[in-house]
Structures are given as structure tokens and as C-alpha cells.
Design a protein around this nucleic acid. Sequence first.
DNA 1: TTGTAAGCGTTATCAC
DNA 2: GTGATAACGCTTACAA
Lengths: 335, 335
Amino acid sequence: MDHMTIRDVANRAGVSVTTVSKALNNYPDVSAETRARIKKVAIDMGYRPNPIASSLVRRESNIIGYVMSSLQSHPNTSILGEYLSGVFTSFTKTDYEVMFLPVDTQIQRRKSYARFVSDYHLAGTILQGLRMDDRYFVEAKQSSTPCVLIDIASESPGIGSVMIDNRAASREAVSYLVKRGHRRIAHVAGLATAWVTQARLAGYRDALEVAGLAFDPNLVVYADFLEQRAFETARALLRHRQDVTAIFCASDLMAMGVMRAARDLGLAMPDDLALFGFDNVEWAGYVSPPLSTVDQDFHALGYEAARLLHRIVSGRSEGGVQLIPYRTILRESAG
Amino acid sequence: MDHMTIRDVANRAGVSVTTVSKALNNYPDVSAETRARIKKVAIDMGYRPNPIASSLVRRESNIIGYVMSSLQSHPNTSILGEYLSGVFTSFTKTDYEVMFLPVDTQIQRRKSYARFVSDYHLAGTILQGLRMDDRYFVEAKQSSTPCVLIDIASESPGIGSVMIDNRAASREAVSYLVKRGHRRIAHVAGLATAWVTQARLAGYRDALEVAGLAFDPNLVVYADFLEQRAFETARALLRHRQDVTAIFCASDLMAMGVMRAARDLGLAMPDDLALFGFDNVEWAGYVSPPLSTVDQDFHALGYEAARLLHRIVSGRSEGGVQLIPYRTILRESAG
DNA sequence: TTGTAAGCGTTATCAC
DNA sequence: GTGATAACGCTTACAA
């Protein structure tokens, strides 16, 4: 016998398959006594229900989809492991499995989001790394399958969002630079189509406004979260605008590019140029000078995303935006 | 109608379900004409076979499992995205989906490898980041389900392995240090239970032997692939053994720890201490001094692992060890 | 070459 | 409370 089926359990327990199914799924219309006996038999036999057969008839699986964009080109892949770790830590209490659905221009998927979801009757999805203009993001919003977005705030009902308060975090970082006496603070922004890019830019402007400093559009450059582009744009900026004494970067990796540019131009850090990053990636404290940054707990983001999704799936939540705590990390780079 | 079934196609095409199934699965006993007609109808209707129903009867799914260890604590998670990207790029030509099976002491999975595989009738698995003493590694070897190991060489028949030639790569790196005149070269090794740790250590010894240098066990320390442990062990080593002028690290992250130790002790790099890393992670060229290292193409590793698995699953390969090219990257840290 | 019918292992419906 | 029976959507002997 390859593996036990519900029939085997039924035979052994001397009841019908129906009763076994009901007992194991905790239906109310089974006597406590029978239920206990059946459960014992099932455990003794090492019976495990076949999730595929179950999915077929229930038209819903216990699989959730982890949709992620830019697997290949995105520089912050180091974070992926943390996200996933959080997701699994959360799901370890449940019986969910996680299926992977990468969305990448490189990896041309034939399947649409809708098809992926319906093919496997996914219970829900978590979407991470998507940009505002991603096809899958639009599809997910229209789909009736529960989903939780990481790092995108969505007003749509029934959709969950998990993120830190990017705007407040950015405001804090830039305010710190202001407090250190900087008056010309540039901002190396990320990818324009990323939701967080807008939020962090807004926080940057907030801080300037609070300090009574004028916002200068020329001091904002977009480097698409790429080290090389940050290097290039920052170098160009620092060459033309020697009044700039501090830079707030929307990611640590871009901060690396700025550091490289500073080195290239012979600027000492933090004396000639103060720097603030974002993310607090694993090596942020090891570069020289150690990088001041905003710590995001990616594990917690993944954990809460999974938890929220689970609540939505089981009807215990309506979705909405959930904020995760962040921390401002002060190291030498910001002076 | 929620979604098309094979019946709808059969009705529309004026044939039986059986014939549709045969036509769509390219069975020989269907006339070319009927097959063409059926396929056209299916496409016109936007029909997609239900993989769950198919799996139930075929007792095999088109899902492969991506088993990975140490999701949380492992420092090299930055590499995960590259691996996955490669896997998906390879599978994009097929109809496989990827299910995630993290194995972590933190994330206590109730399921065994065998159960995971049989519950979903996985077509095969890719195992990455496992250690030699991992329970799942042992189980996978015993299982009859095809699997491919990344970074573990296995002699078992029917099992595939994909990796770079770690031993040769290490020998090359250390030989370079020898060529630069170093005579006392230490080795910061990784986790003792990782397969690559042994291979890299062997390459280190090879290089010493070729150069006629004595192997000194005291010059080998294990830092478990952790930055902090590398920092501590390297600092202790460098304090007691001031004759050491070069260090070969089994990972770039550990090399960061060594850099920190050198800074701590006031050693200039590469003049007082030359350094060689391993992996060529994204930021390896951005630290100061830029790190000499061994470039692993993690994307290619993932790609080839998936390709090999696909060949094994379809009976076109027996498994075996497949080596991926690597490159030695010389930067300032090695002098 | 095509179709009939019997499953795959569950859950849902509705009698008893 | 419990149990036949009919699905779920597909594949596959076996007939025709």
C-alpha cells in the first residue's frame, strides 16, 4: 500500500468514510466519542489526508502564492530570505504551503495572476517587490482572492498592506541631518514606480519644511535602487553642487554608490559629506564609515503579512494597512 | 461558469472527454485532424486543464519542491534571489511550479521531507543550503523522488549535484596569495558541516602543498559563515600570530569580519594583511579595499540545477555531478 | 481512431 | 449521529 487513504481509516475504525471526514475536519455532527476514536485510529495509522483530493472537491487549496517581482535584477535580494523566513514562521502554526510566483520582465511567465490563482485554487497571495505599474498588482486588486501587499498601501477593501511608516522614517532621518547643521541635503531616490519611493520622498520634504528649508528639485535624483546609478548620479550632483553637505539615500545599496562617488571625488565622510541610508542591510554596519540608516525588520514584515493574510482568509480581518515598527540607526556616516 | 472544464471543450468540439484529453496530451492514438480541431477549440475557449485534478489521477504533480535550509540565520541569503531567478528562468519553458519547503531549526516543520513530497506528489526537488547532517538531506537520498543538490556532491545514483569546483577555486585563490609572496596564510573556514567547507579547505591545503609550504592547523579557524565570528576568530588569530600576512576566507561576509578585525588591530590592507574572499556578492567590489574573491554565478547554479532536475524527471539524465564555471576576481584586497 | 466507464481521495448532500 | 451516493476534473484501461 503506497499510502493510507480515508477508506483505510474508515475500515479500521468501523465507520464510513463520511464520518471519518467529518470527524477529522471537526464537524459538529459527530459524537465526541466517535470523533475521539477516529482521531486515534488515524494517528495510529499515520494517516494524512491527501491535500490534492481535498482541494479538488473543496475548490480551495491550502496553498498561498508568494508573488514577487524583479527577482533577478533587484539589488535588495538579500532581504528576500528575511521576508520568507517571517512568512514561514507565521505559517508554521497552520497547514499552509507556499508556492512561488516570480514576476519578472526577464522571466516571461505565460500565466496571468488570475490563472495562477485559479489553477491551484490558491487560498491567498502575498505580493512583494511589485511596482505600481506591475500588471500583477492591477490584477491582484481586481481579483477576489485575498491578498496582502508588502510595501504598497492600497485603499481597496479586502486587501491588506504591511509596511513601515516610510514617510515618518525618512522625515526622522533627514531631520537628524538638519539637526547636525546641514542645510543643503540631497536625496537619492529609488525607482520612481515603487510605492516606497514616493513615501520616502514625501518624508524628505516634510523634514525640510519643518526646518524651514526650501525644497530644491535639483537636489533629488533617482537612481532606481541601483548602486551604479547612485554612483553616477551622486557624482554628477556633487560635482555641480558643492554646497551639498549631506545626502539621504532611499536604500543602503545606493548609499554604497554614493560612498564610492565621495571617495572618487576625494570627499571625506562624514566631514565633507554626511550620509544616511535606508534598510539596514546586514553589512550596513561593516562598511567604512559605518552607515547610518533606517532599520526595517523584514522578518517582521513577512511575518505580519502572512498573519494578516491568514486572518483575511479566515474572515477575521478586512485588510487595511498595518504598520510595522522601524528604528533609526545612527552610525558614523551621518556625523 | 466559473471556469472551463474538459467537458466544455469536448461538447464544443463534438467529441468525448477522452479524446480531448488524449489530443491535448499528445497521445498518438488521435488523428492529426481531430487533434488540431480540438486544440483550436481549446485555445479559442481559453481552456486550461486543472492541474489539481490531473495530479490526483496521475499521482504526480508538476510542482517541484525547493528545499532550503537556514532561511533565517544564514548570512548568505542575498544569494537566494539569484538561485531562484535561475531556477525560474529554466522552468519558464516548462509548466512547473515551485513550492517552497524551508527547513530550519527555528521553523519547526511538522512535515518530514517524505511527507511533503508525497502529500503533493512532487515531481522532484531542489535542495539548497543543506548541511551534511541535515535530516532532509538524508531523507532525500533515500527517497525515490528525483532531486538535485546544490553545493553538495552526492555519489548516490539518480541524484544530481550542481556546484562550482570549490576545491580548484580555493587552490587558485590561495596560490595567488602565495605568488604575491605570502608564506603564512591563514584560512577562515565556514560551517564545518557544510560540504563546501571541506572542499575549500582541501583547495587551501592543495595550494600550500604545491608551494611547498607546511600546513599549520592553527592557521585554520572556523567561523560558521558568520561575520561576527569571523571578526572574533580572526582578531584572536592575528593577535597571537603576527607572522600571518594573508587570509583566505570561505565567504565574502566572513571577509568583512576579517576586515573589521584588521581595522581594529590597526593593520593596513593589503600591505599588512592581504585578503581573499569567496562568492563575489554584490557589494564585494564596493567595500574598501575592494575584495578579491571567487565569483560564483548563483543564477547559473540555479538554472542548471533546474535543468538537470528536469532531465532526470523526464528520464533523460541519471544525475551525477555537474560543475559550473567560476572566475577568480582580483581586486585590491589581495595586494 | 474514438468512446465508455471506472477510478484518483476527498467533501457535500441528503436521506435514514 | 451516521452513512450511502454523487460530485470535483481529469486520466486510462478496455471496448467498440
